[in-house]
Amino acid sequence: MTTLSRPIWEEEPSGIARLSRPLVLALVALAVTFPLYVVVVTSLSTTEAVTRAGGLVVVPRELTVAAYAQLLSGGVVTRALVISVLITVVGTAFSLGITVLAAYGLSRPGSLFHRPLLFVVLLTFLFGPGIIPSYLVVNALGLIDSYASLVLPTAVSAFNLIVMRSFFMGIPGELIDSARIDGAGEFAILRRIVLPLSKAVVAVVGLFYAVGYWNAFFNALLYINDNNKWPLQMVLRTYIVQAQVLPTGAGGVASGTGLGMAPAPSLAIKMAIVVIAIVPVLLVYPFIQRHFTKGVIIGAVKG
């Protein structure tokens, strides 16, 4: 079952196609994986390996985890990592909660103000409010330099809401009506009937929110001035993209000698920051991918 057979009416591929097709596919796969590979190998390299390679390391030799030990033993990156993890966990739970509630509320035609409320949600697709007025609202609410500014302004994704609503609408109304006759309230129906039937879509939407929070950079750029409150993406931008020098010692990154090993080269430390930003995405990615194959997203978007 892992290979489809070629239909009998289809001609055998020509020699060029037989050669070029796997080649192109391999190049495409390599274009994605090679940069990741180099970054990981360099982050694990010793000073000698980096010096010998003249920079980034392609062929792994003399590996060490010194860079990670230094980054994770307190300081700028550790703090940013903790902030990013907390924002992602709290933000995802919050977004998912209110999205489930709203999607259920909007999935039952005939409920109070159903159409106008749906319109209010859909209209947000057509235009954005603009950067300046958004900033002024967050500022007026006193949320500048608060962690809430990293969650609240982008807590609702109308897209995710519509995806979930489409799925809920596919649940037979009879099921819900029978529960109502048995005396279940709306929250009980949602918890005992709708959610158990919708695990896949809840998982996908949750993962989308989580990846969104983890990758968020825009909100922090606009609303967080205090660099002690920076999430990881801002740290990545400052020390990698803008190539500012990472502070060492107190308040910065621990030096290797304090941990009983040789200090990692600064390039390995930089690459380790990149890897730390990638790993969570890689961890949840297989779950996201599993649900794609079920066509949850595509089906919902089409409907």
């Binding site: 209110i98 999205t99 509630l101 709203a102 259920y104 509320g105 909007l106 409320l117 209010v120 949600v121 947000t124 409010p129 958004s134 609202v137 967050v138 609410l141 609240l152 302004p153 982008t154 807590a155 609702v156 109308a158 809401l161 709306e186 949602l190």
Partner: peptide, 12 residues
Amino acid sequence: MVLPVIVLLGVF
């Protein structure tokens, strides 16, 4: 049930 989302969209 829709209220939290509507409030957030309203404010932000």
